[in-house]
């Protein structure tokens, strides 16, 4: 239990650091924030008079000393208040909670696709003689190097436009999730496959594998029941990073397949300098990384029971 408490404390510290960082970056950016808001609303770029600026400054508290603004911001965060979007004039939490689910589904689908593909390829080709191994390994290196944008467009053109197997615009349907998930999942499968394959080949040379064979176990049994469990450990560690990267990288798939999601919102917000919204999304991504790594720790403990939670 002690380690769990420590992990939660660590997670809070990470989020706090992210909040502090985004707050001060936002405060340090050049240009007057009140002017920015007024210009955004009117679509003009002009210098504003003090009379125009005063109510905006008053409303957002820009006149307060910086430490007071910081305390306010953090206090708001503690209550789940991420501020108000300059452009959409709606609470950031509301905007995010509307758009977060499509991105989370996409992230999970991409991760699952990547794992299935990596494991299947490893089970089928690792240590199966020189040619299958080399083909499997070469294929993984190739896919790991594929740029998401290019892969997404190819998948779209081939499977949605030419073959018409999948809808061009995914919307929120399950079938519309397939191509975006593959766009993100195929290169990730390359990475996961490479670390799993390395470990798998090492494990197959271990004496306990010989022991299992000497009990009469066949090749598939040895791979499936013994080697795989050892081999997935590094890929599980890598998945903590992968979940965060998928989430923040989802934007490419979302744009190509015209999906709703956080990625789309982030790009618009960044272009428009909608600072509270950008900060909110940065915080969210930090939170996703933290949660992902907690999940990875948990999964690691399930697969490798040697690590015990000391009570």
């Amino acid at each position: 239990m002690k380690t769990v408490a420590l992990k939660v404390l660590g997670a809070i510290a990470v989020l706090w650091a992210a909040a502090t960082f985004t707050f001060f970056v936002q405060a340090a950016l050049p240009g007057d924030r009140a002017t920015l808001i007024l210009n955004q609303d009117s679509g003009q770029i002009i210098k504003r008079s003090d009379a125009e600026l005063a109510p905006v400054n008053e409303k957002f508290g820009f006149d307060d000393p910086i430490y007071a603004q910081y305390v306010n911001y953090v206090a708001g965060l503690a209550q789940g208040d991420l501020g108000t979007s300059y452009r959409l004039k709606a609470p950031v939490t509301e905007i995010i909670s509307e758009q977060i689910w499509p991105t989370i589904f996409l992230t999970i689908a991409a991760l699952v696709a990547a794992w299935i593909k990596a494991l299947a390829l490893t089970l089928l080709t690792a240590k199966r003689g020189r040619i299958p191994s080399a083909l499997g390994s070469g294929y993984e290196t190739f896919t790991a190097a594929l740029p998401h944008y290019w892969l997404g467009v190819i998948l779209l053109v081939v499977f949605a436009i030419e073959l018409q197997l999948f809808p061009v615009e995914g919307g929120s349907s399950l079938i519309g999730l397939v191509l975006p998930a593959l766009t993100l999942g195929i290169p990730l499968a390359g990475f996961l496959g490479q670390v799993t394959r390395d470990e798998f080949e090492k494990v197959l040379d271990q004496p306990f594998v010989t022991s299992a064979r000497a009990r009469g176990m066949g090749d598939f049994g040895v791979r499936w029941r013994h080697a795989l469990r050892h081999a997935v450990l590094p890929a599980i560690t890598l998945s903590g990073w992968a979940i965060g990267a998928l989430f923040s990288g989802a934007v490419i798939a979302e744009i190509i397949f015209a999906r709703q999601g956080i990625g789309n919102i982030l790009v618009t917000a960044a272009n428009m300098r909608d600072i509270p919204l950008v900060s909110g999304i940065v915080m969210l991504v930090a939170l996703i990384y933290v949660v992902a790594n907690l999940l990875v720790d948990l999964a690691y403990r399930v697969v490798d029971p040697r690590i015990e939670v000391s009570s």
């Binding site: 010989t210 022991s211 000497a214 176990m217 050892h230 697969v303």
Partner: peptide
């Protein structure tokens, strides 16, 4: 291989050295 697998473990038992690495740690 199929025939060997019937013999291994049932008719012939095989003990390796150093159980720390000869048993599956997980």
């Amino acid at each position: 291989d199929r025939q060997w697998r019937d013999i291994r473990g049932r008719d012939i038992g095989f003990i390796l050295q150093d159980a720390l690495v000869s048993l599956d740690q997980l």
